[in-house]
């Protein structure tokens, strides 16, 4: 048993269902989903398109509310957690504000949350260093590559020190090489902070490489069908991807996915 599991889980999802629309157009996106996440975990949600993994992420982040069931974060409602600014969110698109340069983009949450201006420079500098963009603070989004834009988005999500980072296919739009590099960067960030990460992806290698546990989701009903613990040692590197343990875990996740 590691130290994380001794305290109360940071996220507790119980029997969540979510329906969109009504009548003949009704779509059941999630059915009876249960999930407990401990503080400091890195959980990947993986599954076929339309299995509701993004919906589940949005329920946790209180961007949509579930039809039934309860979702709690730090023993309070998800709505309260959002008000308390417990979430940093990274979408598939970087969603940067194109009229702000990199520094001002990362400052956005600090500005909205009323963090004293005197702290901005120091905090933003720390994030720029964390994502390796120290020399790009005055660049505008359109002057950066896709990978760099996504790093700005990660810096912006972490700058207000949220306890949970919700990532919705953040590297899905990147090319394979940039993606592998970003995976490594994200693990580096993960080990240097105490943030808990929920990571939606449809890439099996990515999920296995990054996570402490992989939650495999199925379609119709959209629910978590398997949870695969990933006991690859940290720190992980490019070499990790060539170990037999890694391949076995990839196979295990793939088979869990195939059962549905």
């Amino acid at each position: 048993m590691n130290k994380q599991t001794m305290s109360k889980p940071i996220i507790e999802i119980q029997d969540i269902s979510k329906e969109f629309g009504s009548g003949p157009n009704k779509v059941e996106a999630l059915t009876n989903v249960d999930l407990k996440v401990d503080s400091g975990e890195f959980i990947s949600l993986i599954g076929p398109s339309g299995c509701g993994k993004s919906t589940l992420l949005r329920v946790i982040g209180d961007l949509i509310s579930p039809t039934t069931g309860s979702a709690q974060v730090k023993e309070k409602s998800v709505a309260q957690a959002r008000t308390d600014r417990d979430y940093g969110i990274v979408f598939q698109a970087p969603v940067l504000f194109e009229w702000r340069n990199v520094r001002r983009n990362i400052e956005l949450p600090l500005q909205v949350m009323g963090v004293p201006k005197s702290e901005w420079t120091e905090r933003v500098d720390a994030q720029l260093e964390l994502v390796g963009l120290q020399d790009f603070d005055s660049h505008y989004p359109w002057q950066l590559s896709g990978g760099m834009q996504q790093r700005v988005a990660i810096a912006r999500a972490l700058v207000f020190r949220p306890s949970i980072l919700l990532m919705d296919e953040p590297f899905g739009a990147l090319d394979e090489m940039t993606r592998e590099y970003m995976n490594l960067e994200l693990l580096n960030i993960y080990t240097r902070t105490d943030v808990t990460i929920i990571f939606v992806t449809h890439s099996i290698p990515e999920a296995v490489f990054l996570s402490t546990r992989v939650a495999v989701m199925s379609k119709r009903p959209g629910t978590i069908s398997h949870v695969v613990p990933i006991e690859l040692p940290h720190p992980r590197s490019f070499d990790t991807r060539e170990t037999s343990q890694y391949f076995e875990l990839v196979t295990e996740v793939r088979e869990a996915l195939r059962e549905h």
Binding site: L63, T83, F91, A93, V95, L108, V112
Partner: peptide, 14 residues
């Protein structure tokens, strides 16, 4: 204004 940008602001409880 796209929906992602609105969601981002929503996640900050703006």
């Amino acid at each position: 204004v796209n929906e992602d940008q609105r969601e981002l602001m929503r996640s900050y409880s703006a």
